Simulated assay, not measured.
Amino acid sequence: MQTRAAVVEAQGQPFTLSDVELEEPRADEVLVRMVATGLCHTDLTMGSFLPPEMFPNVFGHEGAGVVERVGADVAGLEAGDHVVLSFRSCRDCAKCRAGLVGYCDSHLLLNYMGMRLDGSQPISRDGEPLFGSFFGQSSLAAHALAYADNCVKVDPALDLTLLAPYGCGFQTGAGTVLTVLRPRPDECLVVYGAGAVGLAAVAAARAEGVECVVAVDPLAGRRAVAERLGATVVDPAEAADVVARVKELTGGGAAYGIDTTAIPAVIKQAQQSLGIRGTLVALGLGAEEFALDAIDLLQAGKTVKASIEGDADPQEMVPRLLAMRAEGRFPLDDLVATYPAEAINDAVADVGAGTVVKPVLVW
């Protein structure tokens, strides 16, 4: 079938809306008409990070839409279902069976290689295949082929334009708090970078009753949102010593830290601002390596670790967060700024400038 997709033609190039051909769903695939797609930092990073031979490429991994057709082997989904798309997992390896679906043995192949496991690509243009199975969806398109394992069925009464970020950004930030760190109400959490992921972490921590939540971000608009969500905010440009200021606010150092920036200097500050035996989770994608303060790490028994998608299972985490949203405990709707699909590069520019937190494209 013919549809439209936002194609990155070559490494480091902007998106170009293009007519493409999408194959009919195979036995294990689900054809989804996209209503909205969140634009995530990973989509932008991969456009510059992947090698030249992996282009042209169709990214997108925060899709939300309506099922149009399902393959013969697909169970639990049918035409007309409203779904949020998330990352893929095989659901059969030892890690998946243990509930660690983000660490699936086939995670890289299923999510980043832009093709099916058999090497075929579901999207083509003028007879030439495009890389087009990013996170098993490539949902920066008017239609996408997905799978039962990465389709989360949602209430059709809900606005899909507001649900798209739950497939990755909101899930990652909130999941890191709810699944990885699990702070007690009397412990302190510091979030570095108050974008969509960081603000989701702030909201989740406050929803769990954590009283001491600090957000560090240079952008006034994002600090204002973090403050509204219940965080104490720090402007790193105004703080003479960010580490000292955070330690002051957290009574000598935070129990937990989350970095979403992938900026090496910020990650080091985040580690140093932890208290004794504190834990930092690095979530940002971008820097290939970063330096830690070894003396501080060893003498204080600190932990620095990473997490894929907040160690969450989207089939469990997305419904959990939507239930919290319905209860008024996860109030992130106003983070979403919608754009027509044709304005995708405007959305990229605006999120880069910090004028919006979470751009969502409407098809």
Rank of each mutant, 00 (worst) to 15 (best):
P51W: 01
A144M: 08
V246Q: 04
A144R: 08
V84E: 06
A282K: 00
Q315S: 10
C212R: 04
V83W: 03
A341W: 11
T176G: 14
A287Y: 02
V266A: 08
A262V: 00
V304G: 06
A244S: 02
V180E: 13
V180I: 11
A231H: 04
R26P: 14
F59G: 12
R88L: 10
G354W: 00
V101E: 03
L332F: 10
D19A: 14
V216W: 06
A244E: 01
Q2D: 14
E211V: 01
L322K: 15
G198H: 02
R325I: 05
G286V: 04
G47A: 09
G284E: 03
N150T: 09
A6H: 09
T45L: 09
V233L: 04
A27D: 02
N150G: 05
G284N: 00
G195E: 13
T303C: 15
G209M: 15
L39A: 05
E62V: 06
L77W: 01
H107K: 08
A224T: 04
E62F: 08
L39P: 15
L145F: 03
A201H: 04
V242R: 03
G132Y: 14
G198T: 14
A6L: 13
R125G: 14
P25C: 08
V83T: 02
H107A: 07
V210G: 05
L22W: 01
G230M: 09
G132W: 14
D334Q: 14
Y147M: 10
T338C: 11
M317W: 13
P14V: 07
S139T: 13
E62P: 14
G60C: 05
L162P: 10
G114L: 04
G301F: 08
V351G: 12
A287S: 01
I267H: 06
E309N: 04
S48N: 12
D81C: 05
R91A: 08
G275R: 00
A201M: 13
A349N: 09
T176Q: 10
R182N: 15
A262T: 00
T232Y: 01
A174R: 03
A300Q: 13
G132N: 08
N57M: 07
M34P: 10
P156Y: 01
G127Q: 14
